[in-house]
Design a protein around this nucleic acid. Sequence first.
DNA 1: CGCTAGGGATACTC
DNA 2: ACTCGTCCCTAGCG
Length: 277
Amino acid sequence: MGVQGLLPFVSSASTEVSLEDYRGQTLACDASVWLHRGAISCARELAEGEPAVGFLRFPLRMIALLKRHGVRPLIVFDGGAMPMKARVDAARAADRESAKARGEFNKTVKITAAMTQQLIERLRQDGVEFVVAPFEADSQLAFLVQHGHAAAALTEDSDLLAYRCPSVLFKLSESGHARRITFAGLQHAQDSKGQLLFDGAWEGEWAAWEGGLFVAMCIMAGCDYLPSVPGVGVATAHKALRAGRTVERALAKLHSKRSGPPAPVAAEAYLLRALGL
DNA sequence: CGCTAGGGATACTC
DNA sequence: ACTCGTCCCTAGCG
C-alpha cells in the first residue's frame, strides 16, 4: 500500500507526538486500516460468508482512544473504486482467492460496503462524525487537512505525503503516541550521513521538490495506478531527480543506465500528464 | 556498498 | 455482489 519504502526514506523528518497534543482538535481518520485490522479477528467467518460483527471492535476501540484524549474524530471512508486501479484490484482479488484455497483466511480479508455500512450505523448512534470520500479516502484526508477541517490526518498510508497533506500521523499505538510527518518538515529530511535530501544541493531546491519533484519521485518509485519501472525505488528516483532537476532529464538518466526489458513508455506519458507537464 | 524486490512470520481479544 | 497489509531479513542486482 502506498509508496514502498517512502516512510523509512523520510523517517528522519518524523517526530514523536501524543494524542494529548491534539486535545480539543479534530483528526481526520482513515477508516480502512482500522476495519482491515478488525476484520482479522473474524477472518474465517467473513470468508465463509457467516454473519460477523467482531470487525467493529478494533475501530470502535481506536475511536474511544481518541475521545479519551479529548480528540474529535472525523472518520473518512473510501467511496467508489478507481478505474485506473482496476489492474491492481484484479490482482489482489486473485491473491485472496488462492489464499482462501490454502485456508489462509487472514489473507482473504476484504472490507465490503456492507461492513462499512455497519460501522457507519454505529457512528450515527454514537454521534461520531464521518464522511464518505468520492473515491479513495487518501485524497479526501489530505483535502480535509489542507482546508483546516482537521489538524492532521491519522493513517498508515504513505500516499498522504504524495498528496501533499500538511500533517500526517502514522503508527498510532494503544498508548496514544504516533509518528508525525509534516509536508513542510520534509525540507529537513536527511540521509544516513546527515545530508539534506531535498534542500541545499542548489538554489531553491526545496521549492522544486515542493512544487512537483516529490510527487514525481513517489510515482517513479511505484504506485497503484501505473506499471512500475523495474529496479527503481525511492532512493533511485530521488537520485535521478536531484541530478536531473527536472522529470524529463531524470527519466532520461534512468534510461541510460537501464538494461533488460524495454521501459514502459506509456507509464512515462501518464506520469508527465499527471504532473501537468 | 547501497538498493530493490521477494519470502517468511505475523496481525486480532481488554 | 461488494475496497488497499506490513515488518524484518536477505539474495542478488548494479
